[in-house]
Design a protein around this nucleic acid. Structure first.
Lengths: 350, 350
DNA sequence: GATCCGATTGTTACCGGTAACATGATGCTG
DNA sequence: CAGCATCATGTTACCGGTAACAATCGGATC
């Protein structure tokens, strides 16, 4: 008879991975004993335990998560609903969320949503329901997405991510810290007339930023020369500013993200204006490239990865029925670079 | 008795979704009849079929994919292994892959890999094995990742994505079309001495690009003034060029991606050099922002989303045991903008 | 050494599908 | 209208875990 710690059974006749039954047979115990060991149950006799451990080792046992979720009724997968995961914000939130989920033993399932095609949206939400997920996460929320999710009436917890919408919550950190600092910075440089290049109005994050901009100005008695809308892309920032042309009547442009700021700067340059000598430009996000724009961009850094973490944390709390920890929405931090400078005494255009 | 097409049963006493058994009971048939209907089996008597359809509708039945995978042994989920999904290439590949997977009825599970921490890698690969996946996809392959996957010996198909490694395959389209076109473009502008800012050598994609650069030059009898390595970031491009300082002896810089080109341009600018008057700069990728850099960047456009699609297509073919369709690796396309110009007759530095 | 009790271990049922086989119903033939 | 092939539907087992309950085992007690 083999020594108790040696269990000589090949991985399995067919190539399939070993189950607890295989392990049980190899160890000469019942499958429940194996299950108990795996569950960390203490009352197993040392000799028995030893055999189980040896069998587990020998067969290279890995639990079958599918079978587990079938019985327990709870999976360890979180559905991440997103579109445009190629964008900086979304992809970084995804990165943070995926990492946080992993730490908690969860996996992120990516469901890309093709906004604009209602049929596709329905299909995707249907798909979400079939994959039994522990929870659902909207990495980036637009109004369409919120509405679609609302309509789907999921039975599992759903968490809409992205920057909090000020209309729904108290002022976010972004509002409370970021824009005021940004506006203060510009005001100190002598600027008093601003143009805001906003994000698409269907994004709560965009509305949030625009509102924060307005409030920060209002609180200081400053003047907004206008708000033009973009769609987050550099192209839209460029075109918005180019369209204004000579009617641009501001000494500083406050874009709602770095890409639009980049586009705006190019448009200004093409109009013969120098940044920051003739006009200052700021962004939001602090994408890695922003520090290397020409000129390097003054911007509000947003910690998207932290946002992703927080969202997952909140969702997991909801899943476990815990009280979600006070969400520590990441502070936004002003990063001053070379795209902002002292306002010109004279107006740039005669 | 209710009309045959009306089945009056509330969704289920508890809040849980209906199963085929619930549907069967409601329709007054066996669960197999329901299963047969769902499978598209034709030999069901119209009257019976009608009752089943009504019950399905009434109970809002959705198949439980978990249960299905447990019995069939095959899931409809693809594990996407990645790190740095926040980067342009990876995130766009992910986007394309997710879309393609969705179309085929699959979902992408994101597993972020924390390279550098061997323990974490092992954990992640373990996790991959537990989630029974139809296949595994490496969205971005570095040598470490390839090695780790190799060592894990998965029982499901694994597909290493990213640009094909020239050492393993015949010359990719990238080699065949992209760099030659780029070099031709520069040569036509009178450039004859080049500096290459390479990506990290542990990435096959980086090696691939560097090799393509070298081959394109060699084929034209042109001179490479040197190769410096970066890590894909703008910072690394900047620092590499800044470190060279006055020793920079090239009339054109060929960076392995747009970010590094951006950084290089800033470094040049800080040395008082004008792009493209004094020196030309090119990138690879054509990230959306590249068209709005100052100056807009001449670059090789890579269709990452298509790469993602192709990778998923190849993986699915492998899963289904089909012969993978001839992978139509996306062509790279030269996009000429303002960062390249005629080489100066005199050397930029006296 | 019989009795009893808790510590260990084993048995059975179930999660929601799929697969294989069994049975009842129908229809055609002679 | 019996006899049998065929169609339609039902039964049972199984996937790999978990949960609840049952049954041993061992040692202490008397």
């Amino acid at each position: 008879m083999a020594s108790p710690t040696t269990v000589d059974v090949s991985p399995r006749d067919d190539g399939k991975p070993a189950t607890i039954y295989d392990v049980a047979k190899a160890a000469g115990v019942s499958h429940q004993t194996v299950a108990r060991y795996l569950r960390g149950y203490q009352g197993i006799r040392p000799a028995t335990r030893e055999r189980v451990v040896a069998a587990l080792e020998e067969l290279d046992y890995r639990p079958n998560l599918t079978a587990r979720s079938l019985t327990t009724g709870r999976s360890h997968r979180i559905g991440a609903l997103t579109h445009e995961i190629d964008k900086h914000g979304p992809s970084n939130i995804a990165q943070g969320a995926a990492a946080a989920a992993r730490r908690a033993g969860y996996v992120l399932d990516i469901f890309t949503l093709d906004m604009g095609d209602p049929g596709s949206i329905r299909d995707t939400l249907d798909l979400l329901r079939q994959h039994d997920l522990a929870g659902i996460l909207a990495l980036t929320s637009t109004d369409e997405m919120s509405a679609a999710i609302e309509a789907a009436r999921f039975t599992v917890p759903v968490y809409l991510g992205g920057e909090p919408d000020d209309t729904a919550t108290e002022h976010s950190e972004l509002t409370g810290v970021g824009f005021p600092a940004l506006v203060d910075h510009l005001a100190e440089l002598g600027h008093s007339s601003f143009l805001h290049v906003a994000g698409p109005a269907t994004w709560p994050a965009a509305r949030n930023r625009t509102q924060a901009y307005q409030e920060a100005l209002a609180a200081r008695g400053l003047h907004s020369a206008g708000i033009v809308a973009g769609d987050w892309t550099a192209r839209s920032g460029h075109d918005a500013v180019a369209a204004l042309g000579p009617h641009l009547d501001a000494s500083a442009i406050v874009a709602a993200n770095d890409q639009m700021a980049l586009g705006a700067m190019l448009a200004l340059r093409r109009q013969g204006l120098d940044v920051p000598r003739d006009i200052s430009v700021t962004g939001v996000d602090d994408i890695p490239d922003a520090a290397y724009f020409a000129p390097p961009l003054t911007t509000l850094r947003i910690d998207f990865a932290a946002q992703g973490r927080d969202i997952v944390g909140a969702l997991l709390a909801q899943i476990d029925g815990r009280q979600p920890e006070r969400s520590v929405t990441p502070h936004s931090e002003l990063v001053v670079r070379e795209s902002t400078g002292r306002a010109r005494a004279d107006t740039p255009r005669p």
